[in-house]
Design a protein around this nucleic acid. Structure first.
Length: 427
RNA sequence: GGGGGGAUUCCAGAGCGGUCAAAUGGGACGGACUGUAAAUCCGUUACUUCGGUUUCGAAGGUUCGAAUCCUUCUCCCCCCA
């Protein structure tokens, strides 16, 4: 199966420039995707692009991951209704380093001819002066052409307006494509469907300035069946950096996908074959409560992004927190294991002296620990039957806690509702 | 520069002198149900030592009593130049 067919059956393909498939079938081709360093980590939204590059390489082509040290300085107006704030050079270069380290994990950089390549467009832009740029690049593209782009037109029609900086973005990205085409024989640019306009400016530049054709493929934007935005939770984005989103939370994100979404996402975010996926779907349909699809999805992505070990820990943690989590299990763990299980769970430190004299549940949860913002809230929640300590539901808001209730002589496990855990560490 | 309208609890939005901690809807959170799902139903959504206490852009004032009336200030929106 070729690359395009692969994307197509997985439901990833959005748009493709005529001639692209022929080029890919003809010979090994280099193709790139750009990642702008807007943060110090990639998030799950970037995974589609990462998977696209992985498929590209598996199909025998040469994937190029571009980190936008230069484009990040300008700011992509696509999909943005207002001008963005510029990031400083130091912050950007830090972001670039973080992204490069993350991207390295996903591709094979040492497999001969189609080894992956990592580039940073800052390398060819830092020496490019303004006059040269507007003469060598700007001359080939008309303002009329640039203004017709969706990303520009929407901003011109709106109230917010648009700076010259962001207006120029497509030229900067376009030149990237031209540069990679010329210097690295890179003939294809890929990206999310919102990037079509920017990519086409690149192929246009290659056509006019280089007199050759280049190709473009865009992928579907990931949508959730319920219409909410993919990759965001109440607590923010799901990052690939384990320091920003713990592997446990990352795993949970995928476990919690709806059945509808799981069906489409397992095609996009795993490398499982059509047969494997269809078998899983049948299995899932027979016993939907086992959530076979979600587990298969979560397992594979967690291993790809983090590691086998991280997955094991995430599963163990999930089993405890949601499944047959018993106090005995927790008591059987060492201090470090407990801290591992509760990694990523809010933790509060409390002075042992408070426990020695004994403390009311409401004082403990609202004043000493930030589980609740006020004692009234704590009291109401306890009366509503929504609070457990050490896996036991609290029935009385005035219940006294002392050192006898501690696990391993220093922990109390608090649950608000079923899902929200807090670890109180008594020191 | 001139004229008009507005600022209410997480959001939207009622209230226009006492019965207002403030309708209603949304969101959030909790409970039941469940698959750590969806839908549904129920509850909570200023603080409290449960006696009360502090809220309705800010500061003053009128009144027995103000989110509601008056004055000043701050901020927002609209219209005309």
């Amino acid at each position: 199966m070729n690359f395009i067919e692969e994307l197509r059956w997985r439901g990833m393909l959005h748009d493709i420039m005529p001639g692209t498939e022929e080029q890919l079938n003809k010979q090994m081709t280099a193709g790139y995707i750009g990642f702008d360093p807007t943060a110090d980590s990639l998030h799950v939204g970037h995974l589609t692009q990462i998977m696209t590059l992985i498929h590209f390489q598996r199909a025998g082509h040469k994937p190029v991951a571009l980190v936008g040290g230069a484009t990040g300085m300008v700011g992509d107006p696509s999909g943005k209704s207002a001008e963005r704030n510029l990031l400083s050079e130091e912050i950007l270069s830090h972001h670039v380093q973080c992204l490069e380290a993350q991207l390295k994990k996903f591709l094979d950089f040492d497999c001969g001819a189609n080894s992956a390549l990592m580039v940073n467009n800052y390398d060819w832009f830092k020496e490019f002066n303004f006059l040269d740029f507007i003469r060598d690049v700007g001359k080939h593209i008309t303002v009329n052409y640039m203004m017709a782009k969706d990303s520009v037109r929407k901003r011109l029609e709106g109230e917010a307006g648009m700076s010259f900086t962001e207006f120029s973005y497509q030229l900067v990205q376009g030149y990237d494509f031209y540069y990679l085409w010329k210097e690295r024989n890179c003939q294809v640019q890929m990206g999310g469907s919102d990037q079509w306009g920017n990519i086409v400016t690149g192929t246009e530049l290659i056509r006019r300035k280089g007199g050759a054709s280049a190709f473009a493929i865009t992928t579907q934007l990931i949508k959730k069946a319920d219409g909410t935005k993919f990759g965001k939770t109440e607590s923010g984005a799901i990052w690939l950096d384990p320091a920003k989103t713990s592997p446990y939370k990352f795993y949970q994100f995928w476990i919690n996908t709806s059945d509808d979404d799981a069906q489409s996402w397992i095609r996009i975010f795993t490398l499982k074959s059509k047969e494997e996926i269809e078998a899983l779907e049948q299995e899932h349909a027979l016993a939907p409560h086992l959530r076979i699809l979600q587990k298969a999805l979560a397992n594979e992505i967690t291993v790809r992004v983090h590691s086998k070990e991280a997955l094991q820990m995430a599963i163990k943690t999930s089993d405890f927190l949601f499944g047959n989590g018993s106090l005995e299990f927790l008591k059987s763990l060492s201090d470090t294991e407990i801290l591992d299980v509760f990694d990523g769970v809010p933790q509060f430190k409390i002075a042992k002296a408070e426990l020695i004299v004994g403390i009311h549940a409401t004082d403990l949860l609202a004043e000493k620990a930030g589980v609740f913002t006020s004692k009234g809230e704590a009291r109401k929640m306890i009366q509503g039957g929504g609070v457990s300590i050490n896996k036991e539901k609290l029935s009385d808001a005035n219940q006294i806690f002392d050192v006898n209730q501690l696990i391993n002589d220093q922990y109390l496990v608090v649950q608000k509702g079923k899902k929200n855990y807090f670890l109180l560490i008594i020191v």
